[in-house]
Design a protein around this nucleic acid. Structure first.
Length: 552
RNA sequence: GCGCCCGUAGCUCAGCGGAUUAGAGUAUUGGCCUCCGAAGCCAAGGGUCGUGGGUUCGAAUCCCGCCGGGCGCGCCA
């Protein structure tokens, strides 16, 4: 028998369905935590769902299910100690209440499991890969990359928490025309040629960083005529810059995969040969085309241009072949929505290779670009323009924790506005401080109590009977479900929202009740509850890459 | 024009495997520090969930049209 109350209730309902509504015996059962306290701790709408196929009135069916569940509960002493008799409400909801002791049991569990609270082995060690940031080494990381870094890292952490073996990977587009362009721009700058002047490359990069690279290159007496040397220097320079930014942001990668290596290893050629061998390509207008329309694309795509070079998506496909061959059956790419056309392209390219890769491979999490406002006007995010807000700017302005929390607090596909003025002037109102403050507050209480309780051994959670204590315990118990859902949906924003709520309930409790009361037993019980709150806050914050300070 | 995404309180956003009274933060207003940190708490006001239809006993949630916004539609990446 399950020990988790929610799982228990599901088992009870399943059995009730088999008894009272055999037609619907195998239907999915959704058990929610109602917003309204008087609707109990758990609620289900199975009766409403099943009523249709059973051709019954929802409320009548609900009453029968309720009777079955009640009978099962009364028959078992264990169950009776955990669950109250359920109630039928509204159009046919069945609401469940837990016995007070069953609610606070989670406190013991949290203190026992510690940093492991919320973690599961669901993933069974399956290898998964999360690719994110993957910025071209042609400029510093901008806010969009920051969003990607915050999202990707949190998604990776969530997958790890559910038992997957995660590889964080960064793909470097270090082989294309843009790199050539970068080298030419630096070379021109070093020769004193400004943007738009004679000799300036078409579509050259004219950000200030180009001048810095040029200055450094000349300063190290680099040979300006040697474009290859300029290219190597510029790429190394920008990679170092990006690495520094990512480090400051607290994001680490396990693998940096170089696009250039795909060419060097012949993997790009191999992809094209395989397509040709399967009759998926044809020549037209001096170029080589892939029959992507066979897979639902609206037109065929050029893979080898008439100048003999490949289009960008060929190495992209080759890259994903390596992911498959490296044993990643589950791959998530975090990218901006401006890349959404590559989703079909890459998937189709993989299909045309006939390697047995599933059609939906890989997964994508696409995020809208961040709009940065300053002084009431939008700050343009454009590499070419050279004026845009970088990740480093944001970190310097509002701090790493605030940036990460903020960027991960929104659904990936929602567009949102990062108001620099607001972040600058009112950084203390950022929700991250609210959550961190709750953590620091618990630490402060422990400092006065002469130390944190090591475990729940000396505490009796049954002494906690206050409304706020019950609410806090229920919130704590919800944490594992939040992680499971957030992982399944690749939606780390749910963690940020959860932490906000947990912190809120703690602040509320703290203001209403004194923790360090005279009564030693009650005091120990409350300290245990605080310890559980602190542990859960710390666990959640670490998933989204935010620190849990003891003092602020 | 076509494709994908978005439109929920003044502002920034949750909710969207349909269901019991639509939620937070922030802003505004009014309270709370002789007592564990006021970066906090308590309370009030504020929404025809873009709009018009449809499905349903029931729609912010599903379907269609329209309006508004974002992104994409290269032999660029």
């Amino acid at each position: 028998m399950a020990t988790d109350p929610k799982a228990l209730i599901e088992e009870l309902l399943r059995k009730a369905l088999q008894e009272k509504a055999p037609q619907s015996a195998s239907m999915p059962i959704f058990i929610e935590r109602p917003k309204q306290a008087d609707h109990g701790d758990f609620s289900t709408n199975v009766a409403l769902q099943a009523a249709k196929s059973e051709k019954r009135k929802p409320r009548d069916l609900a009453i029968e299910l309720q009777a079955s569940v009640t009978a099962q509960v009364s028959a078992s002493a264990t169950l009776s100690a955990i669950i109250e008799k359920p109630e039928v409400a509204g159009p046919g909801f069945i609401n469940f209440k837990l016995k007070a002791g069953a609610k606070t049991a989670v406190i013991r569990r949290i203190l026992e499991e510690g940093a492991g609270f919320g973690r599961t082995r669901e993933g069974r060690g399956e290898k998964v890969q999360v690719e994110f940031v993957s910025a071209n080494p042609t400029g510093p990381l901008h806010v969009g990359h920051g969003r990607q870094a915050a999202l990707g890292d949190a998604i990776a952490a969530l997958l790890e928490s559910q038992g997957y073996a995660v590889t964080r990977e960064f793909y470097y587009n270090d082989a294309g025309a843009q790199i050539e362009n970068l080298a030419l721009s630096v070379q021109a700058r070093a020769r004193g040629i400004g943007s738009g002047e004679p000799g300036w490359p078409k579509d050259g990069y004219n950000g200030e960083y180009i001048q810095e690279i040029a200055r450094d290159f000349v300063g190290q007496s680099g040979e300006l005529a040697d474009l290859e040397a300029v290219r190597r220097f510029a790429v190394a320079y920008l990679r170092a810059e990006q690495d520094a930014d990512l480090k400051a942001f607290g994001v680490r990668f396990d693998v940096y995969y170089l696009e250039s290596s795909l060419y060097a290893d012949g993997k790009v050629d191999q992809v094209v040969r395989t397509w040709a061998a399967h009759g998926k390509t044809y020549e037209k207008d001096g170029a080589l085309w892939l029959r992507t329309t066979e897979y639902g694309d609206d037109k065929d795509r050029v893979v080898r241009k008439s100048d003999g070079t490949y289009t960008y998506f060929v190495p992209d496909v080759a890259y994903h072949v390596t992911k498959w061959q490296r044993g990643f059956r589950k791959v998530t790419n975090v990218q901006g929505t401006d890349h959404h056309s590559t989703v079909t392209r890459v998937r189709v390219g993989l299909q045309a290779l006939a390697l047995g890769i599933p059609p939906g491979y890989p997964d994508y999490v696409l995020h809208s670009l961040v709009k940065v406002m300053r002084g009431g006007a939008e700050v343009k995010i454009s590499k070419r323009a050279g004026s845009y807000v970088t990740v480093r700017d944001l970190i310097e302005w509002v701090g790493r924790d605030a940036v990460r929390f903020f960027l991960v607090s929104r659904k990936a596909d929602s567009e949102f506005v990062f108001d620099i003025d607001l972040a600058l002037a009112k950084s203390e109102e950022n929700p991250v401080y609210y959550v961190q403050y709750a953590h620091a507050r618990v630490c402060s209480v422990f400092a006065q109590a002469g130390g944190a309780p090591k475990d729940a051994a000396g505490a009796n959670p049954d002494l906690l009977r206050g409304e706020r204590e019950m609410a806090l315990a229920a919130r704590l118990a919800e944490y594992p479900e939040v992680l499971a859902t957030a992982t399944r949906e690749l939606a780390p924003h749910a963690v940020a929202f959860y932490l906000r709520e947990l912190a809120g309930e703690f602040h509320s409790y703290y203001n209403a009740e004194r923790i360090l009361v005279e009564d030693e037993a009650l005091r120990a019980a409350r300290l245990a509850l605080c310890a559980a709150v602190r542990q859960t806050l710390a666990n959640g914050l670490s998933l989204i890459g935010v620190s849990a300070p003891e003092k602020m």
